[in-house]
Nucleic acid binder design. Structure first.
Lengths: 331, 331
DNA sequence: CTGAAAGCGCTTACAG
DNA sequence: CTGAAAGCGCTTACAG
């Protein structure tokens, strides 16, 4: 007799217990209409055979298992764990499962992953770089909630982050502390590429009556070493700079380092303000002043919106997360 | 006409395109044996109806979608993201999906989550506190790989971390630097509760001929503030201590702070060595010297072991991850 | 190249 | 309390 490869089915349990399939079903699902003796006999057989009902057969007949796909760039990026955590918790509360997938920032891969997920889940939540048409083609009617996207910019569900408000809070805070030469670190690319963050910074600079020439914007990738390099470059090119506004905490941590290395006191002779509100901001010295994004709320709102799209719930809520300045030590 | 609630089925597409179900199946699955014209017509109808084949029906008939469940304590704990990331990446390479679930350290919940996952996945990977019998009762024959568990201590699959080797590397390093008064921070509980970490530390202390009385072990929960408190307590109770060996990086970061606050130079008058090798160790000042655990490898090995248990692969590999000391600035 | 039949493993009425 | 029948939505041989 060879080792049993095949998984036990309801039929195996039924014949082993000497009953019909629907009696097995009753026992497994804790329904009434079954004598305790029979139930025990069936449950015993099930245990003995390591019987687990097929999720496919079950899902096919009772249409109520909900699984959502969560697509992030990279879980190892400190921005995502809390968001993912919130999505998991909120989904679990509703009895939903969450399949997680990571694009690693690869735009081509993104749509492949969407394809895979679309086959296996009931809704998709995530960071998608592709445009509406491309997404639509791949999700084929699957409910979608885009993270960190202006709801007006897409026909899919979306949860926005009010970057402009966050930026305003940061810059106002710096201006209130007397700063007039505030450089921004972290625009994504060259000037002719649309960049919400850079635009928000410039708008606020104008709004507050600052001199744009004294508030340069420096491109910078999203990492500590890149922040370090960019900050060093800015402080060299614009030595009169007294404050650095970074568009992510990772960049800001690098900026603190660079400033210190350049002989600046932080925040005394060079304030640094970050953006994100990651826990790691509390570990550096001085602790990072930053615009905190409530990523837990972001995840919650996204799952709520999925629920609405799935028609289980109609409570409306503005799908915008407004960041809040968190003043710690660096600025 | 009310809005269409029901999802389109293969039958809907078939009648809309004027063909039979199996022709739809052929078109959707890109099989041959279909004329281009028919295929286009079917695909058009499918697109129009937002048709996505039911994953349940499909899974039922072709038994080959593999989904694994990953159970962690809490994704927001900095120890888990990289592990989760590795599991996702390794699973994706095999074309597997990953459902993630978090226990939040709640032992009761743990088994509930196992129940849920056991219904929906083909194998389970994770941190489980429950004993073999309890796990067995809930997984009912599901392949299981336990993380950070000695393979000899369980009849399930397991990937171990050689904590003793890591501890030895750390303590030998400190002894090599001249330290004789080395306190350990982070035993889980009182002396009569089994604790691999504490035992390893004491064994190494003895092995290296240190005086156990000069190498006390202080209990401490896994967080920065707790590390701070514990370190302060130790430095007060044993002022001759010149090195702190923390059993996690979070604790170690707190220890650095406490030491600095107590007027110690780190590492000059008080060395600090952590355990885990988290990225955040590079952000603190001085950068944390730590015993690095290759969590990426841990995740890979776990998924490999799942593959073996599912019988898809038989390449054997020792399921042990040996940590490596990473000397940075703090010790 | 296309369709009629059977079956994947369950659950849900419906009889008895 | 228990079982025979039908069906969930697909795919896989098998005819034609």
């Amino acid at each position: 007799m060879t080792a049993e490869r095949r998984r036990a089915t309801i039929e195996d349990v039924a014949s082993s217990a000497g009953v019909s399939r629907q009696t097995v079903s009753r026992a497994m699902n804790g329904k009434g209409e079954i004598s305790p003796a029979t139930r025990d006999r069936v449950l015993d057989a099930a245990r003995r055979l390591n019987y687990r009902p097929s999720r496919f057969a079950r899902g096919l007949v009772r249409q109520q298992v909900t699984t959502i796909g969560l697509l992030v760039t990279d879980l190892a990026n400190p921005y995502f764990p809390q968001l993912a955590s919130a999505v998991l918790a909120t989904a679990e509360q509703r009895g939903w499962q969450v399949v997680v997938s990571a694009t690693h920032g690869d735009a081509d891969r993104e749509l492949d992953l969407v394809d895979n997920l679309a086959d296996q889940v009931d809704a998709l939540v995530g960071y998608l770089a592709a445009d509406d048409d491309a997404i639509a083609e791949h999700v084929r009617g699957l409910p979608v909630v885009l993270l960190q996207r202006d709801p007006d910019s897409t026909r899919f569900g979306a949860v926005a982050i009010d970057l402009e408000s966050g930026t305003r809070q940061a810059v106002e805070h710096l201006v209130g502390a007397g700063h007039r030469d505030i450089a921004m670190l972290g625009s994504e690319g060259p000037d002719d590429v649309a960049d919400v963050r850079r635009d928000a910074f410039r708008a606020v600079v104008r709004e507050l009556g600052l001199d744009p020439a004294r508030c340069p914007v420096h491109p910078c990738a999203q990492s500590v070493p890149d922040g370090e390099r960019a900050a060093a470059a800015v402080l060299t090119a614009y030595p009169e700079t007294t404050a650095l506004f970074a568009y992510s905490d990772l960049i800001a941590v690098g900026a603190i380092r660079a400033a210190v290395r350049e002989g600046r006191q932080v925040p005394g002779s060079c304030a640094v303000v970050g953006f994100d509100g990651l826990p790691l901001g509390e570990l550096v010295t001085p602790a990072l002043t930053t615009v905190h994004i409530d990523t837990w709320r972001l995840g919650e709102l996204a799952v709520d919106q999925v629920a609405r799209q799935l028609g289980e719930d109609n409570s409306g809520a503005a799908a915008v997360v407004v960041p809040r300045l968190l003043v710690r030590g660096s600025g």
